[in-house]
Design a binder for these strands. Structure first.
Lengths: 240, 240
DNA sequence: AAGTGGTCTAGACCACTTC
DNA sequence: AAGTGGTCTAGACCACTTC
């Protein structure tokens, strides 16, 4: 664990267990430097992390203060975060839900031209294609349509689709996932989606269309996931 | 403009006008230090900005490389960014659209309990409430329901609702907006929304429910904006 | 072995707030 | 005037990649 991570985690813990109360002033940057025996830039890193994650607000000239933690009402079944791309399994296991999948299609195809383009492969290159529905405690949450370049990923099997594909890529193949470009939309459920997701035709779905990149900058997936509107929320902190 | 911003902007420009091509290696950190006569940490800041904005990928031990810029298909009329909260007007003027508003309600009320809670005001404190539809080139894009604490904002008038309320808060009142907590959902249009947004009842809307904060950490707005699914996309870059 | 990015030190200097 | 966070310097040291 890096030094700035230790500091940020400590402060986060103090806020979460109430040792630091909303609107309370944190120790000054200089004090924290002395406290942890680190340099100013390291404390700043920790502060930046806390600001980005919505825990504190810094005001030049006066100090850094604990924000009143707010959670917007979470009626729906399932909550995702848009800060980091974690994949469905990682997000849901946290809440000790039982995540399962129904696989509707798993094949090797030559993807449509615009998808080949996004994946940076030739029009006649092969890609895995799969369609699966993700369920949390047996309730269908989302349907995914995913393309992954064949050449990049040796040995993807149907069985992997029942668990976390990202875990397979990371732990078994040793790929390093680095970033995702996302477009977020609201779309109506098609007839087949309505059936597979146990909802109505035309029901609002939250669509996340994304291209995922390895740290090498190479795209490793094109994916469209459509989440049932009334069962899924995406949470997010944004800076002005 | 800060030094690291200058460096980041230079490199961004080189990428955008093609001087730096996809997959090309950037100068090393040390080279950039010499080139700009700055210290390493300043170059790192610039690199971090470029990584966060999806322009380059850094690989320890080998270098920093230009990413193939991708833009996901943008069928819809209007595109927003989820990186920074800019407000409707700022996002849309960029595309040289004509942004207008229809105001359906503007009043002072005591907000519902859960909203008062989120705004950190007493249950019987007053707040401005407004409901307006935002149009881009006369096409309705979104309907907003917003509460703002009365005490915080002197002199909000109906006329301000026809332009950018954020601009009023910033430039006229001198408030500094700092961050937004957002929940993103797909919801069906109600009857009145369908009529005001010129769409069907039950049509998918992209809802952004958000609490906005001042740099002092005080909430200044609770807002729910519902964007017509087929006319609006939110774009976003996420790190793994 | 040489080259690359990543974290960190110990401070300087500045912008801004508070009193 | 004193206190606070924000940017930056000039380097050290390290982890990792490439050859």
């Amino acid at each position: 664990m890096l030094k700035y991570e230790v500091i940020a985690a400590d402060i986060q813990k103090s806020i979460e267990d109430g040792a630091l109360k909303p609107n309370e002033k944190l120790p000054t940057v200089v004090e924290l430097c002395e406290l942890y025996g680190v340099s100013k830039i390291t404390v700043r890193r920790a502060m930046e992390w806390l600001v980005e994650n919505g825990l504190v607000a810094s005001r030049r000239g006066s100090g850094t203060f604990v924000k009143k933690p707010i959670t917007l009402p979470e009626n729906p079944l399932v909550t995702g975060s848009n800060e980091r791309a974690e994949g469905f399994s990682a997000q849901h296991y946290k809440h000790s839900e039982r995540v399962t999948s129904k696989v509707y299609d798993f094949s090797v195809v030559t993807p449509p031209a615009h998808i080949a383009e996004l994946l940076n492969i030739e029009p006649d290159d092969f890609a895995y294609y799969h369609c699966r529905v993700r369920l949390s405690d047996d309730v269908p949450i989302a349907i995914e349509y995913t393309y992954m370049p064949l050449d990049l990923i040796p040995g993807l099997k149907r069985q992997h689709l029942y668990g976390s594909v990202y875990r397979y890529l990371r732990d078994e193949i040793g790929l390093t996932l680095s970033s995702f470009h996302r477009a977020i939309r609201a779309v109506p459920a098609t007839e087949s989606e309505a059936e597979r997701l146990d909802t109505e035709v035309g029901a609002p779905l939250l669509e996340l269309e994304q291209v995922g990149y390895l740290d090498s900058g190479i795209p490793f997936e094109y994916s469209r996931s459509r989440n049932v509107g009334e069962r899924y929320v995406l949470n997010n902190i944004t800076l002005a």
